[in-house]
Amino acid sequence: MDYQEFYNLKEHPFSSAVDNRFYYPSTQHTEAAARLKYAIDTRKGLAVVVGDIGTGKTTLAMRMLEELDESRYEAALLILLHSSVTMDWLAKKIAIQLGVKDPLDDKVDVLRQIYERLIEIYETGLKATVLMDEVQMLQSHEIMKEFRGLLNMEVPEGKLITFVFFGLPELEGILSLDEPMRQRVAVKCRLKAFTEDITGDYIRHRLRVAGSEGNIFTPDAIKAIYHYSKGIPRLINTVCDNALLEGFILKRKVIDKDIVDPVAQNLGLEIEEEKAAGLKARRVVV
């Protein structure tokens, strides 16, 4: 028996894995999705989503991919895992994602194959889009120039392909490596941390999806979770998951602030006021 059974849940509500069933349609995520869809539908070429760590960029990317109907879009998601990416590797990956069969080794040949495939997609009436996550990894002026070349592929209605870049705030600096590329950003969205009210609604939403029929977290517990997590969804999940585990161990059916406090502190999280007080105390000692 674990906390899932103890709290009468059908599954764990605060998993760190991205699961579209638990997608929370906050106002900012819904508005961002609408803007990105507009950029894709009107063939704008380049849209950008920036946000701090844990604010839901990957979750939004996965949701967008799921909502782009295969009957209208040729869509793919590419997640970058390291910064040693070359344009040769990237071009082949993009080609494969778009359905190019047997991409060649030479970059120029691959770009030609991509263009020919984009024409095929366009002639079938579909819109081509590649969603790219962790794009701040592309710390290269040359790669930005190459993307600019891909965005030069167009038809009278607009660009043959629309890229949607997701990344940390550093992404804006990466785009600035090539000013003409930066100027091609047609739509930009910025994801921020949740407010306290939204944090509470987010927690209740995930619990409902997991099968909860009651309020497991008290208002004081939710307030504490908000302050420790600073409204960052990933941290909210981590604190809530650990609080439920602690509640199960203590056989407490309701999670209150007295459970959240030690759990969050054990995770190394601090409330801003406590952090500031600690820094002040250290300065006094010195």
Rank of each mutant, 00 (worst) to 15 (best):
R282G: 14
E272Y: 15
Y226R: 02
L126S: 03
A264W: 08
Y202F: 12
F163L: 00
H82K: 04
K57P: 00
T218K: 06
K107E: 06
D256A: 13
V286N: 14
H205P: 09
S15F: 00
P156F: 13
S26E: 06
S140A: 13
V254Q: 08
V130I: 15
Y122N: 09
E70N: 12
Y23N: 01
L160R: 00
L269E: 01
R35K: 08
A32H: 03
K10H: 04
S15D: 03
P169D: 11
M181D: 01
K57Y: 01
S16P: 09
Q136N: 08
G56A: 03
D19A: 14
A193D: 04
M64V: 14
E31H: 04
K107D: 06
Y24W: 08
I225T: 03
R35L: 12
A128R: 09
E116W: 04
Y73W: 09
T55Y: 04
Y38V: 10
S71T: 14
I40K: 07
D2N: 08
R182F: 04
L98A: 02
I161Y: 02
L78V: 05
E270W: 02
L46Q: 00
G200P: 07
R112L: 08
Q97G: 11
K10A: 14
G125S: 15
Q97C: 15
I94R: 01
L90H: 10
